[in-house]
Design a protein around this nucleic acid. Structure first.
Length: 500
RNA sequence: GCCCCCAUCGUCUAGAGGCCUAGGACGCCACCCUUUCAAGGUGGAGAUCAGGGGUUCGAAUCCCCUUGGGGGCACCA
């Protein structure tokens, strides 16, 4: 029997980091064992589902490189796989048929309780310090009683009889887990009064119909599992194996939430994290290779992945570590790859400056390429590109006169130093304007004057970039270009002279 | 309240009875490299393995209890 697992996101919000991680683990498991990975959209919460969220989720998974073997039609691409449709709202007849069967076999029954009655029940159990549980008011109605309620115009929900006893299963990551059916909250609603099916029901009907052999999901589903097992049995279906993954946590160790953490995958993408790093990081949240290596590609992880090496305790999401990994992966990108990926971020950053009123020029392809050595070691995320090199593309940089004067120098010396530097740099000429050509004469100048090279270089750096921290000076000047470098040197000198 | 799960440096983790005076990584602190910032290198601080009982010649590893934390208990998924 081929191994089949799935990710079943609900398009009621943007792709969540936790969903991405669960999808990743399912994908890795399937790849490792040569099984089939399925994507199924659980869109039965019509009120909250949107096509925008659906797009966001599918795009995000695709961006991460998590490809599914079977799944719904997307963006003009046909649905894939023999178990479709893969969108629950298109599977309504299946649920209706399954519910009908349970009703016929008296494993489920129509319940006419009103929301008000149920709320009152809930309140009563709360007051009595009893766990909330359906009291079973409609569990034993006779036909005439049902007809009477129908006659009143009440639209029933369908409840599944959970029965009694206990349910046990062997979780792949947690071992044997046992639940007493009493603690399940009573007979559960599987179909709403409007006829649409509920999560616990659809997930089981579909996992059964799609021949899912392994259900790999977050630990928050652990206590739902007995309900699912009971439903599998009632439906006469094979019960799959379960693996409940540890939760991803906020810094305070509660379940990762939008309120306390950045949870939307799209936000990480927008900030310029690279897919390799996100995949690598997410895989390491709850799984480890057992070796001391930790930089892995998706394929490398798939080769090593094993559910038995999944951690049982929750894992706090550590953005610092993610950024470190991101830097690692950015440094591993080829120059072409880096150019391609950082270009949109630079463009966006420059657009912002332009909108603020700055005069900005657009980098050429060649310029972009020349940026690579300046930035590759300095980007924790691609989105940092703007703050790193935007000064190269701004018509004017604002130079704080104070900063032009190194600590050991006074204004007169700074003026002199900049003038001498300007002369030396000009002498290099436009044709041989390269780092190796610029540095020696400037050092010679320092030598001749008895200046510390670092002092002169700092003055030049500020003059040319407008700031005290920047990429390596000579490469920066080359990137700026001969003319612009001289112009900024002149402007800085004038600015300093004006306030002196 | 009830049920279930979990528990090794601040964080992610290695550890499946002796190899542990507990290893690695992020972060932090020094130093080196160095024109700034990074990157890189070296070193350091940081965990009485939540606490207490057992089992065993021997326990971070097995069992029990306590404590702490988390998750779940919808006509949400």
């Amino acid at each position: 029997m081929t191994i089949r697992c799935r990710i079943a996101p609900s398009p009621t919000g943007p792709l969540h980091i936790g969903t991405a991680r669960t999808a990743l683990f399912n994908y890795l498991f399937a790849r490792h064992v040569g099984g089939t990975f399925i994507l199924r959209l659980e869109d039965t919460d019509v009120a909250r589902s949107t096509v925008e969220y659906e797009r966001d989720i599918l795009d995000g998974l695709h961006w991460l490189g998590i490809a599914w073997d079977e799944g719904p039609e997307v963006a003009g691409q046909a649905a894939r796989g023999p178990f479709g449709p893969y969108r629950q709202m298109q599977r309504l007849p299946l649920y209706a048929e399954a519910a009908e069967r349970l009703l016929r076999e008296d494993k489920a029954y129509p319940c006419y309780c009103t929301p008000e009655e149920l709320a009152a029940d809930r309140f009563a159990s709360e007051v009595a310090h009893r766990p909330p549980r359906y009291v079973g008011r409609c569990a034993r109605l006779i036909a005439a009683e049902r007809r009477a309620r129908e006659a009143e115009g009440r639209k029933p929900v369908i409840r599944f009889r959970v029965g009694e006893g206990s349910v046990a299963f062997d979780d792949i990551v947690r071992g044997r887990v046992e639940f007493n059916v009493d603690a399940l909250g009573g007979d559960l609603v599987i179909v709403r009064s409007d006829g649409t099916p509920l999560y616990h029901f659809t997930v089981v009907v579909d996992d059964a119909a799609m021949a899912i052999t392994h259900v790999i999901r977050g630990e928050d589903h652990l206590s739902n599992t007995p309900k699912h097992i009971l439903l599998f049995r009632a439906l006469g279906a094979e019960v799959p194996d379960f693996a409940h993954l540890p939760l991803i946590l906020n810094a305070d160790r509660t379940k990762m939430s939008k309120r306390k953490s950045q949870t939307a995958m799209a936000d990480y993408i927008a900030q310029g994290f690279v897919r390799e790093a996100l995949v690598n990081y997410l895989a390491l949240l709850g799984w480890s290779s057992g070796t001391e290596e930790e930089i892995f590609t998706l394929d490398e992880i798939a080769g090593r992945f094993d559910l038995s090496r999944v951690q049982q305790g929750g894992a706090v999401f550590d953005r610092e570590r993610l950024e470190w990994l991101d830097g690692q992966w950015i440094r591993r990108l080829s120059p072409d790859e880096l150019v391609e990926r950082m270009a949109p971020f630079l463009t966006a950053a420059l657009a912002v400056r332009r909108a603020e009123g700055a005069v900005v020029r657009d980098p050429s392809e060649a310029e972009l390429r020349s940026l690579v050595p300046l930035v590759r070691e300095r980007l924790p995320v691609l989105g940092a590109i703007g703050s790193l090199v935007d000064f190269l593309f701004l018509e004017d940089v604002t130079v704080e006169p104070d900063l032009l004067v190194p600590k050991r120098w006074d204004v007169a010396q700074a003026l002199d130093g900049l003038a001498q530097a300007r002369r030396v740099i000009a002498d290099v000429g436009a044709v041989s304007f390269e780092a190796d050509e610029i540095e020696p004469p400037l050092r010679a100048l320092c030598e001749a004057r008895g200046w510390k090279a670092g002092d002169l270089f700092m003055a030049i750096r500020v003059a040319v970039t407008g700031r005290t921290t920047a990429p390596p000076l000579f490469d920066t000047m080359v990137a700026l270009g001969y003319e612009r470098t001289l112009a900024r040197l002149d402007a800085a000198r004038e600015g300093l002279a004006a306030v002196a």
